[in-house]
């Protein structure tokens, strides 16, 4: 059992470090995985297309508005679940 644990630990460590080597360097924008896809479009045309003066708003409320819609529903559901677990009085 102990040897199995040791081997497993070693394997995980090897995979972990092998994976770490492939990660992009911190702070280097040109190596980020999504650099060639949507990020340049958001940065270059975000203000023009959405009218939002900062990128965060442009992405959150316009490009990814459907995502925000889901988040809102999740929050509402959290409230409903809290209510249904704890229960409410009948006449309310």
């Amino acid at each position: 059992m102990r040897t199995a644990k040791a081997v497993l630990f070693l394997l995980v460590a090897i995979f972990f470090f092998a994976f770490l080597k492939q990660l992009p360097t911190l702070g280097k924008s040109r190596k980020v995985a999504s650099f060639h896809h949507v990020s340049p479009r958001y940065i270059e045309k975000g203000h023009e297309e959405t009218g939002a003066p900062n990128y965060v708003t442009a992405v959150l409320a316009d490009y990814r508005a459907f995502d925000t819609f889901g988040e809102t529903i999740v929050i509402f559901c959290a409230g409903l679940v809290a209510l249904s677990i704890l229960g409410i009085k009948d006449h309310e």
Partner: peptide
């Protein structure tokens, strides 16, 4: 861009109501 900004302000209002009440 202006009319889109108005649209995103509208959805922010919806989010505000939901978060507030929850």
């Amino acid at each position: 861009g202006e009319i889109r900004a108005l649209g995103s302000f509208g959805i922010e209002l919806g989010v505000t109501l939901t978060v507030f009440s929850t």
